[in-house]
Design a protein around this nucleic acid. Structure first.
Length: 556
RNA sequence: GCCAGGGUAGCUCAGCGGUAGAGCAGGGGACUCAUAAGCCCUUGGUCGGGAGUUCGAUUCUCCCCUCUGGCACCA
């Protein structure tokens, strides 16, 4: 039995409604999780929301509700969307969860109590006073970056005052108290993982980008905010003294531990705790973190591994990052632009799902982008890909296959004892494509995997025309050949539905129901022999992917 | 300025040493089991520009232009 598969997504900030980028990441992780399950792996899929921070606090004030009420409302929107899109997680991470607060504080305590021998100083965390210019309006310290061309701070920052503030810092760079250099350790880790062909970051072209960032790393990470400035967060443990709230990363990133299977924050020994039968933290850890390219540097690629290192995780317990790209929006002039509220081009996945259905949205998001790259979002292409690949392609194949099987054989094609060369070759190609499919999916290349599915469908549709079952049915001497054609088509449809199972689970399952067959068992063996169950009888056809009819474009 | 990833048919992209491929869109044809779907054939490209290495470059090297990220710097 291989190691259980633990997959997470970034947790979304509950400051506004979900957009297509949020949906893409969750569907991607969901598809990978479902695929692993399909292979027979034990899977734990974690997703959730990041609910703390200044912006939430402000949005809540604006809305005239408490921060908790505010995030509960936004969180509900996310959960409803995942429900609608068929994103099924095993655990839901919410940073306002009592369990999480406990875990964050336990981690901070652990680091605070990790003292330099013979002293009272923590090896990892220290307190420092920062003095500088502070924008009251933006509630942040300003750096020279924020100065205008005249060297002054612009009106958007005013009023600006000089202020000093005490905060806690987490070491990222070498220090005598540490006894080693985290930066060098991380560089070595990245290199070693690449050498072992288990890259720390996927796709591999991101590795260099991260390495670069690590090499330039300087300064430590501020992990607190004075409670006077930020109320909506997790208070530091008492041993740190009064008046500090956890600042973003030691809160948000920790969710991966809090909600990991088998984790119990009340025990300090993570590796041996058991929350519910069969769930051991050490069995599942480390995770595959599915994240967007915007939070690879520095959060997930730099802070997180060093945090884990500080918390006592071994090098073997460092996670892998799967970094995906962005969906850009095509501007009116055809140019590609970033999605942003100010441009008014935000795509609402909720509306999209209502309009076209979850299957169409999921299929589009998985098939029209290469994992890791950016893509241009287009509703037109969504409709096109759905109609061409699913409705006209697979859907129609299933429909015509079942119709012919019922019409010519009352749903019971005779078993094929011997397949002649053509059909054996056809099924062998199917098997070949299944192998490619598994390989592609294993590498999170969902788009490529779906291309294999399309190939299977296309070849089957071509077989219908080249063999013309309607002619075979009129000739008693061709009876065996007709059975072979129908059998080959049924098996092809079964395989295509199997390949679609993780992307559009319900529709694929419906196809298999109509075929009255189970999914093909995914393996690296070739199922070249085709046999239907002894008393096989196919079900009734009913279009699974009805065509999306768009109003004709205005021509004048 | 530095690092990385792009710039290939109308569109989306693949290829990455032997003078170009797929899908969609466009055009033509034969068929009828089917969701007026499907099948077959087909028109499209001086592979961003320039130089070099090579018998030969879209594919390697260098320079330039341009787009996208990231980092830095000036102000």
């Amino acid at each position: 039995m291989s190691k259980p598969f633990f997959i997470t997504t970034a947790i979304d900030y509950t400051n506004g409604a979900p957009h297509i980028g949020h949906a893409y990441e969750k569907v991607l992780a969901d598809v990978i999780a479902r695929f692993e399950r399909q292979k027979g792996e034990k899977v734990f899929f974690l997703t959730g929301v990041d609910q703390h921070g200044q912006k939430v606090q402000q949005s809540a004030e604006k809305a005239g509700v408490s921060p908790q009420e505010y995030v509960d409302g936004v969180t509900a929107k996310f959960r409803a969307l995942w429900e609608k899109l068929g994103v099924r997680c095993d655990a839901w991470a919410a940073t306002t969860d009592a369990l999480h607060k406990e875990c964050v504080r336990a981690n901070l305590r652990m680091l605070w109590d990790d003292k330099v021998p013979g002293t009272d100083r923590s090896r990892w965390i220290y307190k420092k006073t920062q003095r500088g210019f502070y924008s009251v309006r933006q509630e942040q310290f300003l750096t020279d970056k924020e100065r205008g061309p005249d060297g002054e701070f612009g009106p958007e920052w005013q009023p600006v005052e000089e202020r000093e503030e005490e905060n806690f810092y987490f070491r990222l760079t070498a220090h005598p108290d540490l006894g080693f250099d985290p930066k060098q350790w991380l560089l070595d880790l990245i290199d070693r993982r690449s050498e072992e062909l288990k890259p720390f970051v996927l796709p591999v072209f991101r590795v260099a980008e991260l390495r670069n960032a690590v090499e330039k790393l300087e300064g430590d990470l501020c992990i607190s905010r004075p409670a006077a400035r930020l109320q909506w967060g997790i208070p530091f443990p008492e041993s740190f003294g009064e008046g500090f709230v956890t600042y973003v990363w030691f809160d948000a990133l920790v969710n991966y531990i809090t909600f990991a299977p088998g984790h119990d924050p009340h025990y300090s020994e993570r590796s041996s705790t058991e929350k519910s039968p069969g769930l051991y933290f050490s069995d599942y850890w480390p995770a595959l973190h599915v994240i967007g390219k915007d939070i690879m540097i520095p959060a997930h690629g730099v802070y997180w591994p060093i945090m884990l290192k500080a918390l006592g995780f071994s090098d073997e317990e460092m996670p892998t990052l799967l970094v995906h790209g962005w969906w850009n929006i095509r501007g009116k002039g055809g140019e590609s632009e970033k999605m942003s509220k100010s441009l008014g081009n935000v795509v609402d996945p909720d509306v999209l799902a209502d309009k076209y259905g979850a299957a169409a949205v999921r299929y589009y998001l998985m098939s029209d982008i290469a994992t890791g790259r950016d893509a241009d979002f287009s509703e037109e292409r969504l409709v096109q890909r759905y109609n061409v690949d699913l409705a006209n392609g697979l859907g129609n194949l299933v429909n015509r296959t079942l119709n012919m099987t019922r019409k010519y054989r009352e749903g019971r094609p005779h078993p094929m004892e011997v397949l002649d060369g053509d059909f054996a070759q056809h099924l062998d190609s199917n098997s070949e494509e299944m192998l490619h499919f598994v390989t592609d999916m294993d590498q999170a290349q969902i788009q490529k995997g779906l291309e294999q599915m399309i190939s299977v469908v296309n070849r089957a549709n071509a077989l219908v025309d080249s063999s013309a079952p309607w002619k075979l049915a009129k000739d008693p001497e061709q009876s065996d050949r007709l059975d072979a054609v129908l059998g080959t088509l049924i098996q092809s449809a079964q395989l295509a539905a199997t390949m679609l199972l993780s992307v559009t689970p319900e529709a694929a399952a419906e196809i298999l129901r109509q075929l009255n067959l189970p999914p093909v068992v995914l393996s690296d063996k070739r199922p070249v022999t085709f046999t239907l169950p002894p008393d096989y009888c196919c079900g009734e056809p009913k279009p699974v992917f009805p065509r999306i009819e768009l109003p004709a474009p205005e021509t004048n």
